[in-house]
């Protein structure tokens, strides 16, 4: 039996909103040691999502037997919208489940809402992702990255990211003209989450699909900062840290023909 109780429903609500536009169906893997993990690839096989919610993400967590819960994320999102962000949220499944029970509790108002979501058999490839060496790692405010990704998409379907030891440059080249945004590295000791940190082994110049970057920044409400790891001619990793877990996106770069 799985029983995972979140102190607030907001984490799960934000996680599902962050991934449901990229993948429609996915398997939730549940185990006592790892908590809940997800690996899902979008239909175009350009963007991969890796979610980890450790048992420490939950107020209470037990999973007697490893479970795979196949979910339609649009349906899950409809149910998660029924609860308030500050409600307790509990996910419950039997050992051989055909449905997932989702319970919201508002202890102050003595309100309990229960929903049952039908599960599906989902056949999906799992990709092996080893710890990668990277040429540079950038940590910046998640909102600042989201603004650049959203703004630059209006100019071009591609966004070039160039990193040097003291700045990150985002560049778009479109039919109406060009644009660039430079963010300089800075350390804000009063408010560390406002810092822009660049750890550079080698300068990087990579181009990504603006559409996918806009899918990634849907995770912005989950964390104050995002860490981006870039390597020449390899997928980039975008990480939003959660309390006791993470939501990572791996995005394949574009290449010149």
């Amino acid at each position: 039996m799985l029983e995972g109780k979140f102190e607030t429903a907001s984490t799960m609500k934000k996680v599902i909103e962050a991934i449901k536009d990229s993948v429609k169906l996915c398997n939730l893997n549940c185990s006592q040691n790892d908590g809940i993990t997800v690996q899902a690839i979008d239909d175009s096989r350009v963007l991969l999502i890796a979610l980890k919610l450790d048992p420490s993400c939950f107020q209470e967590f037990r999973c007697d037997k490893d479970l795979v819960l196949g979910l339609d994320l649009e349906s899950l999102s409809k149910i998660l919208r029924q609860g308030n962000p500050e409600d307790y949220l509990t996910l419950i499944a039997e050992d051989s489940p055909d449905s997932l029970l989702i319970v919201f509790e508002d202890s102050k108002k003595d309100r309990i809402s229960e929903f049952s979501l039908k599960l599906m058999d989902i056949d999906s490839d799992v990709l092996t992702i080893d710890e990668m060496e990277h040429d540079c790692a950038i940590t910046l405010p998640a909102a600042a990255f989201a603004k650049v990704a959203r703004d630059m998409k209006t100019l071009s379907e591609s966004l070039q990211i160039l990193v040097t030891k003291d700045s990150v440059k985002f560049k778009a080249d479109g039919s109406i003209g060009t644009g660039s945004v430079i963010l300089r590295a800075r350390t804000n000791l009063d408010d560390t989450k406002e810092s822009i940190l660049i750890d550079l082994n080698k300068p990087v110049n990579l181009t990504f699909g603006a559409k996918y970057l806009n899918d990634i920044v849907k995770a912005t409400p989950l964390a104050d900062t995002v860490t981006i790891k870039l390597t020449d001619k390899a997928p980039a990793m975008f990480e939003y840290k959660l309390q006791g877990g993470f939501l990572r996106y791996y995005l394949a770069p574009k290449f010149e023909d």
């Binding site: 963007l47 092996t128 181009t207």
Partner: peptide, 14 residues
Amino acid sequence: TGTQERLDSFFKVA
């Protein structure tokens, strides 16, 4: 603006 690569060319199916 380049060709969009797929993850399959970087990561193997487990």
